[in-house]
Design a protein around this nucleic acid. Structure first.
Lengths: 344, 344
DNA sequence: TGAAAAATTGCAACTGATTGCATTAATTTA
DNA sequence: TAAATTAATGCAATCAGTTGCAATTTTTCA
């Protein structure tokens, strides 16, 4: 099979005996070109099987119509919803997406940022890795005034636009709910406190305790990585504690599910012996036994907000430096795993 | 803040008073350039904050070093593992990935194919959407001899390289296992039979029945979309059937989990009343109660194989037309949900 | 020391589309 | 009908690298 030569606007121009300038304009539907000519050119393009060379175009136009996205992982319901939300907005506006994921590694994140910078994305939407500290690796973007919007895992102090939920409130609500169920010794399983989301959730937890005059006990705070393994570990640690805790707020649904299962294996009844609250409202919440009380994390909304905001920047509707923090609504969803009422 | 002007190889050339040709070669670490010159140029590039213009480069080189990936969804464990496998291989070989997903829509898939074609990916790895029929929408790739490799959801008749598991065998094993547990009326929940994977699994199911002289009953085949809703529906349908089935082979773990849960709610005991086998070996298998027997679908391996094969094509090690079908190993993983032994 | 070989470097064409400005053609107006 | 508008098209520079081939410099070896 012969490989067909690539068709360019020169070929079209030649065939119709007109200039490439006219062809280029016609293909962009520029009204300055005569309607008939335009139609003729577009037809010829179709017939010849012309495809635009994005590189030549990007090179000349000095922009890519592409938005870069950096997330920590792909395999969570939350992230998938965020992506869906972003896609919904950007597709309409005619932008392409370039998705990179850091596997929770700062090193990979840095590489991704650099890569997307080289690829010259017009803007960036990012959620930071676990161990990312500071935003120096985004400096290249800041220097060139390329808009960057963060979501979920953000750098709180930094002066950037961010889309987040009120993690403090979420932590507070979850804890308050557990207290209202009569729990007094509430374990909290969370991740590195240098990551805003986790620090805030803990702060909310503390506040709820304080409000009800329950003394905060350092030993009930378990800092983990929110993996499968960590769910198991947390369960075992909980079993070792005495007096035994009567509730656990595990800031990730999957870990919570594993933890709950491990506890059940050891003969602990949920929620009677230990009440459990997760975080995210992943699909698993509803298929485990008992169903998991959790915080709904509205990924789709967050994605949409981030994308909409970014596009506003790109269109010049808003100044990049006019940064702000957008708070999405989250809420406590109460299911069986935390309802001790029957126990009273 | 002033936006810095972009640094090009011309700037570097000027500063060092050499030609752009030398700069270009040096930045590619071309050994034809003197080591010292190379070092000097690379240093200057770093100092000036030079970043390569990929478009100019791609335009001239006529290739992108990018591999396109089209999947039906992102939010499954299986797909995520495949992506991880692909990434592992391609990253080493210096390729970038462009990931698109079709949301199970043929229309979106077509758009994605076109888009990646315009983006001039050097090769493509794809898994087809539910309702995709034929491969005409890939014709542009075939015409230009751009290698395309399919995995999981493939078009069986088509003459392309594909990486799959032996779905027939998987269906056979799952069914045989259930029969060995003493089950006689085995429901199979699967998806559109025009999609190879599902058709094959059903064929395996039939074969296992035939072998044990169990009559095949059309009414026990439920064609669904393998969503959450479908798990619930399947459960309700099963409850309606009389005599009641004693097993269900649900070709998707998540659906199986939902189905199982619904059955449990209705007072059915698993596996005593109804044994259940899923498909994929997603993480949920181990966190539901009872743990789910399933078919392990080695996503990572499949991704690696597909990527390795594609890269071999790209490097010219193998002819694109020398297509083949690569079968990855899959296996039955037996857990509680199907073990009726205690029942006998 | 001088010629041949090897190592470096540079020239200039090339990749394909876009766009400011000039030119030409068509239409309107006085 | 000539001048003035308006509409349509083309010229040619530009975007930033890459690379075949030629030219130059350096090294090697007799």
């Amino acid at each position: 099979m012969k490989i067909k030569k690539e068709v360019t606007i020169y070929d079209i121009a030649q065939q119709l005996d007109i200039s490439t300038a006219t062809v280029s304009r016609a293909l962009q539907n520029n009204p300055v070109i005569n309607k008939n000519t335009r139609r003729k050119i577009q037809e010829a393009a179709r017939e010849l099987g012309y495809r635009q060379n994005t590189f030549a175009s990007n090179l000349r136009k000095q922009k890519t119509n592409t938005i870069g996205i950096i997330v920590h992982e792909l395999n969570s319901n939350f992230i998938t919803s965020v992506l869906a939300g972003i896609e919904k907005v950007t597709a309409d506006a005619g932008y392409d997406l370039l998705i990179a994921h850091s596997s929770e590694s700062f090193k990979k994140e840095t590489a991704n940022v650099l890569n997307l910078f080289h690829k010259r994305v017009d803007g960036l939407i990012a959620s930071l890795a676990f161990d990312t500290r500071g935003l120096d690796h985004f400096q290249s973007f800041f220097d060139k005034n390329i808009p960057v919007i963060f979501f979920d895992r953000v750098e709180e102090k930094a002066d950037n636009t961010k889309v987040i939920i009120d993690n403090f409130k979420a932590g507070y609500q979850a804890t308050k709910h557990l207290i209202e169920q009569g729990c007094k010794r509430i374990v909290i399983v969370t991740a590195s406190l240098s990551r805003n989301v986790y620090a805030e959730r803990l702060r909310g937890y503390k506040e709820a305790l304080r409000e009800r005059q329950i003394k905060f006990d350092e030993k009930l705070v378990l800092i983990k990585d929110l993996s499968e393994k960590c769910g198991r570990e947390a369960a075992l640690q909980i079993l070792q504690m005495k007096p035994r805790p009567d509730a656990a707020f595990i800031t990730n649904d999957f870990s919570a599910a594993v933890c709950m299962q491990t506890l059940k294996e050891k003969g602990i009844r949920i929620p009677q012996d230990i009440a459990i609250v997760g975080f995210n409202n992943d699909a698993i919440c509803k298929i485990i036994e008992p169903q998991l009380t959790t915080i709904n994390y509205p990924g789709m909304d967050i994605g949409e907000m981030a994308a909409r905001n970014l596009i506003a920047h790109l269109k010049g509707d808003t100044d990049i430096r006019q940064t702000n923090t957008i708070i999405a609504k989250s809420e406590l969803i109460i299911r069986q795993s935390s309802l001790k009422k029957g126990n009273k």
